[in-house]
Simulated assay, not measured.
Amino acid sequence: MHSSVLRYFIEVARCGSVRKASERLCVASSAVNRQILKLEEELGTELFDRLPDGLRLNPAGERLLKHARETLHQYQVARAEIDAIKGESTGHIKVASMDPFLDDLVPAVVEEFLQVFPAAKYTIAPAQSLEVPRMVVSGQADIGITYVGRLAAGVTTVAVANCPIGVVMPPGHPLADQPSVTLQECARHRLVRPSMSPVVTAAQAPEFAEFWDGIEPTAVCSSMPVLRRLIMAGLGIGCFSKIAFLSDLRRGDLLWRPLAVAELAQLQVGILVPTQRALPGMTQNFVDRLARRLQQLELGTGVA
């Protein structure tokens, strides 16, 4: 099997550096570099442009990257099916996630997973954005879902999706006709919000963090279903990603408008796994399905 060399190639492509990739893989730089050179020799072409500040995929490398991701996904699926044949169909999947992604993303994957691994056990813990990577590093979780940026050492991002923050409101709200909403406009209306720290830090979006600290919400609640009902009832508007409200947006029960804050428009959510410990085949299969579902959700966020 050539899964190892493909993993090395994917990580070098992601990091743009053999050294950085080797640190994430916990493998010697020389071993990673040797495998990349061997791969290029077998294919008869270079896969990277060697630049002064690192490596960049060339057209051949871009094509191989697509193949490598597809191949590794199919390999993990096959591993899971073989484990099931051998009777290794039980295990414990531990997920730490920001609350908005527990409404549809995680439950949908669990439902799908039950068809293949009905005996699997789950621990699914809601956590704030900064807590998720720490839980993955410590072993409290094997899989994390959170906003990505400068993550701590010990975690690897295996999938990302664009996930901007905007304003969720009922149809007919005074802000509904605007293509985007400023924080100043948002502050003129009643707001509801989760009873937790802001989903993004002051380092990620200082203007939004200041706004969050300064508002006096009409209602504060830790339950997303309750917050959804309050917004529908017209008690207030809320600042969230679309992903937690996709069903409501598709039905037209709620509307979403982007906030006119550049940092919020560039936010990405990622699926994190530990760097220094290998996940069991069944857990890795869950990760692959989660990544695929996240990408489907990203494509499905083009709703009003």
Rank of each mutant, 00 (worst) to 15 (best):
A291G: 11
H2W: 03
V160D: 03
G44C: 09
G281M: 03
R134H: 14
P170Q: 01
R292G: 15
S30A: 14
H189F: 14
F286R: 03
S138T: 13
A202W: 00
M224C: 06
E62P: 02
P258S: 08
Q76R: 13
Q178N: 07
L57K: 11
F240I: 03
L294F: 06
T157Y: 06
L297H: 06
V137R: 05
A153S: 14
R79Q: 15
V32E: 10
A187M: 02
V200S: 05
R24M: 09
I215T: 05
M282D: 04
G166C: 06
A78Y: 08
A278P: 01
S247F: 08
R134V: 11
I143T: 07
V116L: 15
A203L: 01
G166V: 10
M232W: 03
R56H: 13
L264G: 02
Y122H: 07
G270S: 09
L246T: 12
A219G: 03
E11L: 10
L55K: 07
S180Q: 14
M196K: 07
G44V: 09
R150W: 09
R228Q: 15
V273S: 12
Y75G: 02
P164T: 09
V18A: 04
M135N: 10
S22T: 04
I243C: 01
L255H: 12
A28F: 11
A209H: 06
A21P: 04
D49A: 14
I215L: 08
C15T: 07
G144D: 02
D104Y: 10
L175M: 07
L264C: 12
P164H: 08
R14G: 09
V5S: 08
T123Y: 04
P174A: 12
N58S: 14
G44W: 10
C239V: 13
L249F: 07
M169F: 00
A141E: 04
A209P: 05
R277L: 02
C186Q: 02
R24N: 04
A233Y: 02
G144K: 01
D104W: 08
I82H: 15
I93V: 10
Q284S: 01
H73C: 09
P194S: 01
P59N: 14
A125S: 06
S247K: 14
L25V: 08
M232I: 04
D248S: 13
R150E: 09
Q115N: 13
A260G: 01
R257P: 08
V181R: 01
I10W: 11
L55A: 05
G214K: 03
L72E: 08
V137G: 00
N58T: 14
W256I: 14
A153P: 10
I36Y: 12
T90D: 14
P170V: 00
Q284T: 00
Q128K: 04
V192R: 06
H73P: 00
V106E: 13
L299I: 11
A21I: 05
A265V: 05
R188L: 13
G87D: 14
R250E: 15
S247Y: 07
A304G: 07
Y147F: 15
L130E: 06
R292N: 10
D49C: 05
P179M: 10
H67T: 07
D248H: 11
G91E: 08
A159R: 00
A108I: 04
C26H: 15
P59Y: 13
S129Q: 10
A209F: 02
V269R: 05
N162D: 00
V273I: 15
V77C: 05
A265T: 11
D177T: 05
Q284W: 02
